[in-house]
Design a protein around this nucleic acid. Structure first.
Lengths: 119, 119
DNA sequence: TTCAATACTTACCTGGAGGTAAGTATTGAA
DNA sequence: TTCAATACTTACCTCCAGGTAAGTATTGAA
């Protein structure tokens, strides 16, 4: 969910899914964790160029509350925290597959049509 | 795309798809048009309770520019305008299917867990 | 005693998504 | 001459997602 809690009522499934995945970096976090299995806070930060620490932690917290990922704290010095997808997170990532493929085709089509990225 | 034009560069397919589908009412417009085939402005408005005319027309214009739908004007009095999905719009709607199903399951799970909608 | 490394935390600010409400254009019917 | 019906259009405003930048907590090593 977004920081302004919703959790319904939803008018359709897309609505319910978007409530959980909308957020500038969430789908990328999902992708990163699906690819690497487990990632530390700093690794995620480096893997998402441009993300601010505030938004990264905020998104991670929301995704944890939404049951998409698990947070494991290792009491070491310096501190170490690992994030990993839950089963729900993995299934969401899979459900996003077709959308990603559609977007991929769109990007290729735009490129083929000679639409240069804006200056 | 959002009113602040993006059209890339995209860092992944999800990104490219989200650029086109993010917007409070866009997935619902997609669903409405996929279900009815063709809809007039006023019909869409009545079909999306709560949408403002400003946002509806803005979303429709953006989706037209993104090649998702077609706008057909009938020179009559009173005026008549019909909207229908293009092939791209239809394929996007299909790509959203699994996400919608995931959201549906999530909504059912939340209901089963006894998470009442917020007051 | 200070520093390095990691993972946050907090205060503050800006831009833009989206809402409200009133106005416009067209023309046949009453 | 006014009104009804439809599809916008415009001005103005609010709220919040997200950014920046500085601060905190922990403790072993130098």
């Amino acid at each position: 969910m977004a920081s302004s809690d919703r959790r319904g009522p939803y008018i359709c499934g897309i609505d319910a899914a978007m409530d959980v995945v909308s957020g500038k970096w969430k789908s990328l976090i999902l992708w990163e964790l699906a690819n690497y299995g487990t990632r530390r806070f700093g690794e995620l930060k480096r893997g998402l160029p441009g993300v601010s620490e505030k938004m990264l932690i905020q998104h991670l917290r929301e995704m944890e509350q939404d049951g998409l990922l698990h947070r494991e704290v290792y009491r070491e010095v310096p501190p170490k925290v690992e994030y990993a997808l839950t089963e729900h997170g993995r299934s969401l990532n899979e459900a996003l597959g077709p959308l990603g493929e559609w977007g991929q085709r769109r990007a290729e089509r735009l490129a083929a049509e000679g639409t240069p990225p804006p200056a």
